[in-house]
Design a protein around this nucleic acid. Structure first.
Lengths: 223, 223
DNA sequence: GTCTATAGCTTGATAGAC
DNA sequence: GTCTATCAAGCTATAGAC
């Protein structure tokens, strides 16, 4: 039988010019994304970061605190990106166009950041995994992203005022999960297409996803 | 700091009338859904099942083989449900109506089964978690669900023939992730609504989701 | 701040009696 | 088929030198 999780090498993969702290965060991010919190031993993290086992507790206090900081570090940047786009939304060009701008205010920071480097792509894979998870991990994500989530829910209601509260919440929930599905980079697209399409071809999948989400929310408003 | 994962009790929660094998599968299903493969120790599983530690290796050979059977057991039933619905699809009532029937052939078995009992809801939570995961776990899911996934992709192409191959794959991918988002039961809806709506109110969320997915795929066909 | 060494516990798997 | 008892290896966290 095939092993469910096997570490694929990984010592000293992180650029040595960075601080120990940053290297630990990057290494942990990649391994949490690949194997989950419980599937990524501290020894693997420090080995990949090119540091020593004790450095995690020296810098963060515990493995859990490291995980928490992995999530929070880039969440701050995503939130800032989204707030900036929300503040400069164009108006009054019809429901479809307004909705598209709103969906892009949510999702385009993910695309832009994903093109900046492998670290961001690891982070988005990790977020995608956590999106469908409950237990205490979700509370962590919630604290980081929900305040701005409320703003998006409000804006959906401004564009389609007759949506029920439940429909607005589901519109947001489905926008989140659609965006995350694109950046989860599971390889499903590769397998289903026999290698002709790549999950990691984010730019093209992004366009399809925005179109899909806009159409989906408009349809929610029609019935 | 709050603990990321803590087992919440759990001894002998499974009905004692069933075989040891079934009780182990049900207990493992619930704990894998709550904590992931690595976060669910065999001791917790056997404790919840009301059996002994050695029973897992006695019956399945390893923890991994147990996990594999947890996935496969109900996948067979879901696939049979979907095939039956695909075989009796109504035709020629316009693209939107045909698409809605197709989406419901995919998703209504999930709703029906979720209403049958907590075990099915645990299974769907587990599937939802694995949907955005790669590594070797995805290959397991792929083997179980991809053959019938191909059929759905074909049918999407029959209804909207001018979609590109990539658009058809993304339509399927986004239908899968939308459906899984509803049954992931993360509690996000509860938190965002301040408790006024429940994530576990599957029947209502299901209707919103089908509407959203139909609208999304139609929109993909428009551009 | 960084290191080595190790404590103290939990893990998955198995040997062998019944 | 089911049990008890146990093993060897893995884990996180920490003590204490530099």
């Amino acid at each position: 039988m095939q092993s469910i999780e096997k570490m694929e090498g990984g010592a000293k993969r992180v650029a040595p010019g960075m601080s120990v702290r940053e290297r630990l965060l990057d290494a942990a991010e990649a391994l949490f994304a690949d194997h989950g919190f419980h599937g990524a031993p501290m020894r693997e993290i420090t080995s990949k970061a090119g540091t020593r086992l004790a450095n995690i507790n020296d810098h963060f206090g515990s493995k859990e605190a490291l995980f928490q900081e992995v999530i929070a570090r880039r969440a701050r940047l995503i939130n800032a990106d989204r707030l900036a786009l929300l503040a400069s939304l164009p108006r009054s060009r019809g429901k479809a166009a307004e909705l598209q701008s709103l969906v892009e205010a949510f999702a385009s920071p993910l695309l832009e950041r994903s093109l900046q480097g492998a670290e961001w792509r690891n982070y988005l894979r990790l977020l995608a995994q956590l999106t469908n998870t409950r237990s205490h991990v979700l509370l962590l994500i919630a604290d980081e992203f929900n305040p701005i989530g409320e703003i998006f829910i409000d804006r959906i209601g401004k564009i389609l005022p007759h949506l029920t509260r439940r429909q607005k919440l589901n519109a947001y929930q489905l926008m989140v999960s659609s965006a995350m599905a694109i950046f989860a980079d599971t390889g499903r697209i590769d397998v289903l297409s026999g290698g002709l399409e790549q999950s990691s071809d984010f730019s093209n999948h992004y366009k399809d996803m925005v179109c899909f989400v806009v159409g989906g929310i408009l349809q929610l408003g029609r019935q």
